[in-house]
Simulated scan of single mutants.
Amino acid sequence: MVKLEPFDVEQWMDKYENSPGIRNLAETCAASISIDELVALCEDPNTPHPLNTATKLTYGAIRGSSALRERLASLYSTRAAAPLPGDNVLITPGAIAANFLLLYTLIGPGDHIVCMYPTYQQLYSVPESLGAEVSLWKLQKEKNYIPDVEDLKSLVKENTKLIIVNNPNNPTGATTPKSVLQALVNFARERDLIILSDEVYRPLFHGTSPADPEFPPSLLSLGYSKTISTGSMSKAYSLAGIRIGWIASRDRSIIEAIAAARDYTTIAVSQLDDQVATYALSPSVMHALLGRNIKLAKTNMTLLETFINEHNHICSWVKPTGGTTALVKFVKKGVPVDDMQFCIDVIEKAKVMFVPASKCFSPELKGSVRMGFVCETEVLREALKSLGEYIREHLA
């Protein structure tokens, strides 16, 4: 029987996020929107409504509609030497299904995996459950949580098959710059290794600009065929409720292998979900939607940075540059708090929820919590006010 470790962050979310009166700073999606709000963002009144109610609710296109796959392929073709064909994209029920499916397809006993760490637990616990050996490529606070390829080189073995990265990173909010990604690709190409880049928070960048020469591209744009990108409509696109994710690769054989394995799992995604995602990624909607979320992230980042600066004797961080999460460390009298008990106490006394990092991401992150800060601005404002009152009473 496959043995899976408890998925700590998801179990924590499930246990506490519906607590009465809670202000949720554990959620990692950019503030979710309704279909009506999505339609209101559309810049072309002639664009058809996202839901075609005349559609017969069959299984639909098994790999995802051609319209949706072509729109995603065009995103990966930006700044790339060659366009990505739509047939090199496979639609899945969320990025969590995308990651699970490709690991289930590609990884087995005897394989060795190197995984960026800390990151979303699925990315290293699932390979372990499949019988693979996993080495952790640890991010260092002293290096602003930017991975060091020299550290990676010492981890790779003769049976290494896959390197896994997460960019922007969950939980730190750090982004891996272009030069590091290129060095990673060069190293993997020399050894014929596959790279999985979980880009679920892409393209929500708030601390770096496309004009910056180190702005991180998708890994698929760097010219190495054995790269895989997974993504989702949940985080940067505010549409977690439609459960749309995807797998993209320039190696068609990888996509074909995963598509064959999927026959044993979900078969297809909902046609209705596919329609909404296709609409959201249309030129008349996508730029307004991303503009809304990047503006929200920047506004909220300013609020959170002000809060941390005001309480710098209690909390510290490496300021995030992408995604929706921040890793914040709290101390009391110079000693890191027990972050698990701290989180429970803050839920009970301040009605604010975030995630204990030492339990849900790494025991080495004692005293730290993961905050999801790209919620509605007023929710963040009220949560930080309550948290400030808690700090003055219990930690100062």
Rank of each mutant, 00 (worst) to 15 (best):
F330P: 03
R63E: 15
G245Q: 10
L239H: 03
P356S: 05
D263H: 14
Q121R: 07
K178W: 09
K15Y: 03
P168Q: 02
Y264A: 14
T278M: 05
S74N: 11
G241N: 10
R79T: 11
V149L: 10
I163Y: 02
A350S: 11
I33D: 00
K161T: 10
D148E: 14
A31P: 00
I344T: 06
V331W: 04
T266M: 12
W317D: 08
A240C: 05
Y117G: 00
T172E: 02
A54S: 15
T306Q: 15
P45T: 05
S154L: 04
E376I: 00
S282L: 03
P216W: 01
R252L: 05
V374D: 03
K332W: 05
Q271A: 07
A277N: 08
R292K: 12
E364N: 14
E10W: 02
I391H: 01
L25D: 01
T58L: 12
T306G: 15
S32M: 10
G372A: 07
Q140H: 13
H311Q: 12
K333W: 07
C42M: 08
C375V: 15
D148K: 11
A280K: 07
A396R: 09
D198W: 12
A297P: 06
A261S: 14
P20R: 10
G21S: 09
H287F: 11
R79F: 13
Y76C: 09
V369N: 08
R202H: 15
A297H: 11
F7R: 07
L72Q: 07
K349R: 14
H287W: 10
D212E: 05
T105D: 04
A132L: 04
R63K: 15
K359P: 00
T78W: 13
G86T: 06
A183D: 15
V369P: 02
M286L: 10
G207K: 13
T92A: 02
Q182A: 14
P171D: 04
S34Y: 07
A81W: 12
Q121V: 03
Y264N: 15
I258L: 06
C360D: 13
L222D: 11
K3F: 14
L296A: 06
S225Y: 11
M116T: 05
S74A: 14
Q275W: 11
E376Q: 13
P127Q: 06
N300Y: 13
T321C: 08
E364Y: 12
